[in-house]
Design a protein around this nucleic acid. Structure first.
Lengths: 336, 336
DNA sequence: AACATCTTTGATGGTCGCAGACAAACTTAT
DNA sequence: ATAAGTTTGTCTGCGACCATCAAAGATGTT
């Protein structure tokens, strides 16, 4: 099969120790000897076995990432950023889509544990108890969970401030003169969905605006869910002048549905999304939305992870990220 | 740290061999003994070390995937399908975005080799010679490359039939009465871009339609590239009645730009995309596009991969996938 | 010149956790 | 008592790292 360190040593006429040392630059070796080693390695197309190495040094330089689904553009962008950070830090990323299935999640958790990844990034944004208990079984393994909060002192948590994000959205609409505002959100089993609804409710109350019951709709954070949500909204006896939508994917579905029904955005209906996915700048019209700092999120996740890997005994940190409003063209001002 | 097989053996009062055998069901062990082993494993929270195992059995049950960027929705969807297949087959997927950088690609190639992944899926769709030579250095490693064709007999290749896809698109436009057709394509350093252009040219010729030079635009397969491409197209002295766009991401950018300029789609301008990404159904209007069978692509890639892993000596296969047209609402018929 | 001491460089063998070839112990049958 | 079957154990090696040891060369001392 592939050459081992022994083969290289043999060919270079030195000991394996020497080979190891020149390859890892772990102590001084005579120039000439180094040269011989390099040549031998080259000739044999030698690639040191990370698995043997890992067995000895007890780390694998790989991280697992548990994510609901990368089909959602927000997650896709986040994974992209995480991958970039991992690469920069010399880690490999093993991608695990849970598809929201407990069994798949558990199975992956088991695999990752056995493969001895150095840590696990969790981005499932569900606060389901059963998942939770799966996770704590792995307590020994460094973990940072984003967008979700098992109240455990030994995992690090990173959260976007979703209730603030919702406030920002509503404030913007109010400033533009909107009073009749609807909401299409994600499934309440997910923390961000819950928080965004909460923020919506709060902000509406703060602005002294009435909330019409059939104008707050729970959907699923997917394209199709947005479409369905909008259809439901359009079937109401009276229509709002604006709608805040829990994420950009649903916003896209919703806008498509509205426009198919002949509704002009933003003239007849304003919409604000959430996430600021890349493509939301290319909607027709470009979407006004709440930005989640994905790059920052990924960076924090990885740096926190690495800190924890290097110092496993420290207490769990909790990091809060601040969203901000990105104004584009999907909200119109209402004249008084 | 974590318990080893030895600890389990000790606690269960048996040899490590027995533990190994009951855990792997690799030979008969008396019921009672099994029970003791399971209990011991449970009590110690034992998770067998896949790294030690891999060292011994010489496989890692993980695959590497080299992909330009998962920011592109098409790749994101493909990766998603690939991940599903991997999971089903008991493999882990390590995600490697090359971002089109040779250095990153090489670095990842090295890492994957050292980590002893069982195979590498390549989806860079560049036919750059330098990348090519990086790859053949890894000749020993099972590889299936999609969307790209290093003419090497020892790697498997899967291609979508992009020239046919382009034909389909143009035929559809022609059938709807279009004669003035433009094209915005991807960078010609990528094979699919090249093939789609080729198909466009062929199909136009077949339909006896003239090709206006400034109506064929080379862009970059990104959202923004589509936008820029459309801007360029709109600056032409005369406008086409339809445009075929090399992928859905660019189609989105292009449509957004056109609509921002007050152009009605499809009334004033028809557009056909390529890829049939999930979200293209939610454009305004929903996009007529060429479907690439992503699920099938992923399945073929993985099954081919596994075949090759099990039988490394076989000759390289070449598999061609057929695209098909998905009609939605972005093309209008032109009355004669 | 001969010996001691220090420095530079190379070799040896144990270890990580597991699998599996080989074989031993213990039953039961003949 | 021997053969055949059942159940379990011993031992080596996978490929790298590393602490320890050893040899050779350099320098100093008498």
């Amino acid at each position: 099969m592939s050459a081992t360190i022994k083969d290289v040593a043999l060919r270079a006429g030195v000991s394996t120790t020497t080979v190891s040392h020149v390859l890892n630059k772990t102590r001084f070796v005579a120039k000439a000897t180094q040269e011989r080693v390099f040549q031998a390695a080259e000739a044999l197309n030698y690639a040191p076995s990370a698995v043997a190495r890992s067995l000895k040094v007890k780390n694998t330089k790989s991280l697992g990432m548990l994510v609901t689904t990368t089909l959602n553009p927000f997650f896709a962008e986040l994974v992209n950023e995480v991958e970039k950070c991992c690469y920069r830090e010399g880690y490999n990323l093993v991608l695990c889509n849970t598809d929201g299935e407990l069994e798949k999640t558990n199975s992956y958790l088991r695999m990752l544990t056995q493969k001895r990844v150095d840590g696990i990034l969790v981005m499932c944004s569900a606060y389901d108890d059963s998942l939770f208990s799966s996770l704590i079984g792995q307590r020994n393994l460094p973990m940072v969970v984003m967008d979700w909060g098992p109240s455990d002192d030994y995992v690090d948590r990173i959260q976007d401030n979703s209730v603030k994000g919702a406030h920002l959205a509503i404030q913007h609409l109010v400033e533009q003169g909107h009073k009749r505002i609807a909401y299409i959100g994600g499934p309440l089993t997910k923390l961000p969905a819950k928080q965004r609804l909460e923020g919506f409710l709060e902000a509406m109350a703060q602005a002294n605006l009435a909330i019409q019951d059939d104008w707050v709709i729970e959907s699923d954070f997917e394209f199709e869910g947005g479409k369905l949500g909008m259809r439901q909204l359009l079937s109401c006896s009276s229509l709002p002048s604006a709608v805040f939508i829990g994420n950009d994917a649903m916003a896209m579905g919703a806008m498509s549905e509205a426009q198919l029904s002949g509704i002009k955005i933003p003239q007849q209906l304003s919409v604000v999304g959430y996430d600021n996915c890349m493509y939301s700048a290319y909607f027709s019209p470009p979407l006004t939305t709440i930005n989640q700092p994905k790059e920052r999120l990924a960076e924090l996740a990885i740096s926190t992870m690495i800190e924890r890997i290097e110092n496993p005994r420290q207490e769990g940190k909790m990091i809060m990220l601040e969203p901000n409003l990105v104004v584009r063209a999907s909200v119109s001002a209402i004249p008084f």
